[in-house]
Design a protein around this nucleic acid. Structure first.
Length: 660
DNA sequence: ATACGATTTTTTTTT
DNA sequence: AAAATCGTAT
């Protein structure tokens, strides 16, 4: 049995031991939020609740895995049947079984953002909108508008008025594109990320047996990162917890950083209104950071008007003040961070206790070069996601047409891999094969060659070889074996033509195969592929290689949420970078950016370095002068008394150019 | 008309 | 680094 009183503080213990009913936990950064959630699940299971009657909704798959792993360790009870994962994951599980009620086939595919961007672009060109001289937004922009409209429940005109005023005169056309996109998705039997949530809610509202089944099933619904839920997610939770009303939500309004995705921290604020009998708990004791770091974070977040009043109390004492390090330019910034990392290593700090955080992917470019040059091992938790890389999607598309021969997007993708086959030819082939009941076998007929021009014929022959090798595979073949066959049947050649780093891409494909072994079938594997993030793959990779990863972490602030390191560097702390100039266009943008700054600062346990370049070279503009972030300026005390400052300012000497 | 390839531009954050 | 654009070759 777990000794809860010994392992938890009084604040946490109250939450873990609280009776049934709706519960709101306002949990400050570093207050042991995950620990509390984990122990509550453990307590529920120990008190006899069966795991399959518990639902744990988390923000990432990784968070779910970690929490469930810890619950198993604590209780020693197998909890395989416990429902845990992201909203999209849970929606997928329920929709696979019940989507026929909404007119979908149960083998629907999930589109990732690239898929939806391409489909929207197709809709735009099909509608012949580009003919006009007006510049029309690209597929990804229309996609963002549509997505925001669905997730905030504002109509498209409202979203455009608020966030994209320069498209105001195009509202009608955008609406036409949006509705065509919805129709095309349904025709293709595909759901994008938003459909998963939207359809799950629709299913439960419109179908009482389904609602009854799931809401009666879940005796307890627990939610992490509730401040980042949107309206639809909040309603889904209400529905899932409808019968038993044991809904426990945990979050921190100061860490709400996903409004661009429709997250609305009004959910957490209004929770007591929706559940008047809700018990409210606060976790305000911070175990993570030194008082100096907490002081800086608190002084920053206090500038936000829209927030819950809460005061984080430090448990720790001592430590050094956060450091502000102005540097002359980007190269010097990379030099400084690298130099400081080397010194920390000499002091005994392990690589994986050091992180460098930034606002946007491309902010880490120079640093990556410098770290590589000095031989410091690092891991990038951002940038292109593993499952979104071209070679992964290519191979997955071959598998998709085998599983679902009517997957239009997958057909077009694989066809265009061949030489002299472009959009038009691929479309012609798709029209030809999809007119038959068995599209795959039509590839083997000579009629197919009628779709090809002279130049494209060799490519068609190669494609036919590929399909010949894939078409009669026994069902028993594993994904790894199929990937092997795809490589041997011509894809290897294709890699050679296109890329210079073939070996590492082939390695990725082997890992993709390994990863797939965790699933019961290839269908299930492909169905979840779009919901995977690179972190799932990274984790899996290290697990399979069975080696302790010990590397410096480079991450966006968003991806750093919930994590902690002994030393954190925040780079590019200049105004325009954080807050990002673009983000300020939104009326609530500045406060959200300040919350990002707060999240980044509170990741640090012992040392925090804020770094910004004073000059930046921009093409066409020469050297521009950068100011420190307004979030740093506003921390600077009016008196020149150093003791009042929440940070120490360092003067970084120029150590010369790194290429000398 | 179609596909390719050189050139230019452009990057927020994520399921 | 990747995508979009534009001009050229087939």
């Amino acid at each position: 049995m777990v000794d809860y009183e010994k392992e938890l503080n009084p604040e946490q213990l109250r939450v873990v031991m609280a009776d049934n009913g709706p519960i709101l936990v306002i949990a400050g950064a570093g207050s042991g939020k995950t620990r509390t959630l984990t122990y509550r699940v453990a307590r529920l299971i120990e008190s006899g609740v069966r795991p399959e009657h518990i639902l744990l909704a988390t923000f990432t798959n990784k968070a779910a895995r970690e929490m469930l792993g810890r619950v198993e360790m604590l209780t020693g009870i197998e909890i395989g049947r416990l429902w845990g994962g992201t909203f999209h994951h849970i929606a997928n599980l329920i929709l696979r079984r019940n989507c026929a009620l909404l007119g979908y086939d149960s083998n629907y595919s999930i589109m990732d953002s690239e898929d939806s961007r391409q489909l929207i672009n197709t809709c735009i060109s099909e509608l012949g909108i580009n003919a006009g001289s007006e510049k029309f937004p690209k597929g990804n922009v229309v996609g963002d508008i549509v997505s925001l409209s669905i997730n905030t429940e504002d109509d498209i005109a409202q979203v455009i008025a608020g966030r994209y005023p320069y498209f105001y005169n195009l509202i009608d056309e955008i609406n036409v594109v949006a509705s065509r996109y919805q129709i095309r998705k349904k025709e293709l039997n595909m759901m994008d990320f938003d459909d998963l949530l939207f359809n799950l809610r629709k299913l439960m509202i419109s179908n009482s047996p389904v609602l009854k089944e799931y809401s009666e099933r879940f005796l307890h619904v627990l939610v992490d990162e509730y401040q980042d839920t949107n309206v639809i997610q909040a309603e889904i939770l209400d529905l899932l917890a409808l019968s038993h009303r044991n809904l426990m939500v945990v979050g921190d309004d100061s860490q709400s950083i996903y409004s661009f995705r429709g997250a609305n921290f009004a959910n957490i604020v209004r929770f007591p209104e929706r559940y008047p009998d809700a018990k409210v708990f606060k976790l305000e004791t911070n175990y993570r950071s030194t008082p100096g770091i907490l002081n800086l974070a608190n002084m920053s977040i206090i500038n936000n008007e829209k927030q819950f009043q809460k005061k984080l109390k430090a448990v720790r004492s001592g430590g050094i003040k956060p450091v502000l390090a102005p540097v002359s330019h980007v190269i010097q910034q990379a030099n400084f961070v690298t130099q400081r990392i080397l010194e920390l290593i000499l002091e005994g700090v392990p690589f994986n206790e050091i992180a460098v955080l930034y606002r946007a992917h491309y902010h880490s470019m120079e640093l990556q070069m410098e770290l590589t040059r000095r031989g410091i091992p690092f891991e990038i938790r951002s940038g292109i996601r593993f499952f979104e890389q071209a070679h992964i999607k290519d191979v997955a598309s071959f598998m998709r047409i085998m599983v679902n021969p009517f997957d239009e997007l997958a057909w077009k993708r694989v066809l265009m891999l061949y030489r002299n086959v472009g959009k038009v030819t691929a479309d012609r082939v798709w029209k030809f094969v999809s007119a038959h009941t068995d599209p795959l076998s039509t590839v083997l007929t000579d009629d197919l060659l009628k779709c090809a021009s002279k130049t494209a014929t060799p490519g068609f022959r190669k494609f036919r070889v590929m399909i010949e090798n894939l078409i009669d595979l026994p069902d028993k073949k594993s994904a790894s074996e199929i990937i092997e066959i795809i490589l041997e049947s011509g894809y290897h050649e294709c890699l050679q033509e296109r890329y210079t780093d073939i070996e590492s891409r082939k390695e990725d494909l082997v890992q993709l195969g390994n990863f797939s072994e965790k699933f019961n079938s290839i269908e299930e594997f492909l169905g979840e592929l779009a919901l995977m993030t690179n972190m799932a793959a990274e984790e899996d990779r290290s697990y399979l290689a069975d080696r302790e990863e010990n590397r410096v972490i480079l991450s966006t602030i968003h991806q750093a949420k919930g994590l902690e390191w002994a030393t954190v560097f925040m780079i590019w702390c200049s105004d325009g970078m954080i807050p990002l100039a673009r983000a300020l266009k939104d009326p609530d943008g500045e406060e959200e950016e300040r919350r990002l700054f707060y999240v980044a600062a509170t990741r640090a346990k012992d040392q925090l370095y804020l770094c910004y370049p004073m000059f930046n070279y921009k093409r066409g503009m020469g050297n521009t002068v950068l100011s420190p972030s307004r979030f740093i300026e506003e921390l600077t005390p009016s008196s020149i008394n150093d003791a009042d400052s929440p940070y120490d300012q360092w003067i970084v000497k120029d150590v010369g150019n790194s290429w000398e």
